[in-house]
């Protein structure tokens, strides 16, 4: 059996992840997180904030809760079932940063936490900023032409 045939054989026999179940959990838990976010938004606007500030504070609140749950060692247990449900909202990003910070603590604050905190989240920050800048330039020229 050559490499190609072996890889095909291995892929063919490996039990697949339960996609339907994973999707259902992702939908339910991800939806719950978004509903929670919407709830916070209503709460903040009810308390007299303007819409823009309330939206920012919703993200801050969700990041805070995720980081707290990551610190208490609870978040990964939820994510085990939620999958993309916790990964896709801002909660996934917050967990990727917080979990790396917790792990790197043993190497100190500079070579540990400081150097490694964005190991997982780094690509999102780099390419998010990079493509954001490109989008900005394109947007600038389009508005220049179309007024």
């Amino acid at each position: 059996m050559n490499e190609k045939e072996y890889s095909k054989y291995v892929e063919g026999r490996a039990k697949k992840s339960p996609i339907l179940k994973n999707c259902a959990f992702a939908f339910l838990i991800g939806g719950t997180i978004c509903t929670l976010g919407q709830g916070f938004f209503h709460l903040y606007t009810f308390l007299g904030m303007d819409e823009l500030d309330a939206r920012t504070l919703v993200s801050v609140t969700l990041i805070f809760i995720t980081t707290l749950l990551t610190g208490f060692g609870v978040f990964d247990n939820i994510a085990r079932f939620a999958g993309a449900g916790t990964l896709v909202p801002i909660t996934g990003f917050a967990n990727a940063v917080a979990s790396e910070a917790i792990d790197s603590k043993s190497e100190g604050f500079i070579p540990g936490v400081g150097a490694k905190i964005f190991t997982i989240a780094g690509p999102v920050i780099l390419y998010g900023t990079f493509f954001g800048a490109i989008y900005g330039v394109i947007y600038y020229f389009i508005t220049l032409i179309w007024g």
């Binding site: 490996a14 992840s17 990964d76 994510a79 085990r80 999958g83 990727a96 917080a98 979990s99 790197s104």
Partner: peptide
């Protein structure tokens, strides 16, 4: 886990294999 995969508290799903 730290050395080869992800941080311990990272929320991810494992495959059956």
């Amino acid at each position: 886990e730290r050395q080869f995969r992800f941080p311990l508290e990272y929320g991810g799903q494992r495959t059956p294999t």
